[in-house]
Computed example of a mutant assay.
Amino acid sequence: MLTSVIRSPKVSLCVLLLSTSLLSPAASYAQAPPPPPHAQLRSIDVSGEGIATVAPDMAVVSLSVTRVADTAAEALTQNNEAMRGVLDALKADGVAERDVQTGEFSIFPRYSDPQTSQKDGNPQPQIDGYQVTNSITVRVRDLTKLGGLIDKSVKLGVNQGGQITFTNHDPKAALQDARRKAVADAMEKAKTLAEAAGVALGPVLTIEENNLRPQPVPMMRMAMAKEADSVPLAGGENNYTVVVNMRFDIKP
Rank of each mutant, 00 (worst) to 15 (best):
D170Q: 12
M187L: 09
N211M: 07
G157S: 01
Q160K: 13
E209N: 11
G162V: 02
L205S: 12
G147L: 00
R221D: 09
R141V: 07
V140I: 04
A194L: 09
N159G: 08
R221F: 12
R139I: 03
K189W: 04
M224K: 03
R139K: 10
V183R: 14
V138K: 02
A196W: 06
A197Y: 10
Q215M: 12
G162E: 01
Q163K: 06
A200N: 14
E209Q: 15
G162T: 01
V154I: 07
V217E: 10
A200W: 03
L193R: 12
T144V: 01
M224E: 08
T165F: 12
S153C: 05
P203N: 12
N211I: 02
A194T: 07
A184W: 04
A200D: 13
M224C: 09
V138A: 02
P218Q: 07
K152C: 03
T137L: 08
E209P: 05
L201M: 14
A184F: 02
T167K: 02
D185V: 05
R180K: 11
P171A: 05
N211W: 03
G148P: 06
V199C: 10
Q163V: 11
A194Y: 06
D142P: 09
A196E: 14
M222V: 15
D170F: 11
G202K: 04
V204R: 05
F166A: 05
I164Y: 04
A178G: 02
D185L: 05
V204T: 08
D170V: 06
M220H: 12
K191T: 06
L205F: 08
P218V: 07
P218D: 06
A225G: 06
A223S: 07
A190P: 12
L146H: 05
L143G: 02
A173K: 04
L201T: 11
V140C: 03
I150T: 07
M222K: 09
A182H: 08
L205Y: 06
A200I: 09
M219W: 05
T167F: 06
T167M: 13
A173S: 08
E208F: 06
V199T: 13
I136Y: 02
K189P: 06
I150V: 13
K172Y: 10
T192E: 12
L193G: 03
G162N: 00
V183A: 09
I150H: 00
R141K: 15
R179G: 01
K145P: 12
V199D: 11
K181P: 08
K152Q: 12
T144C: 01
N210F: 04
A196N: 15
D142N: 15
V158R: 00
N211A: 06
V140Y: 02
M222S: 08
M220F: 13
Q176V: 09
M219G: 13
R213I: 13
N211Q: 14
T137V: 13
V204L: 07
D185E: 04
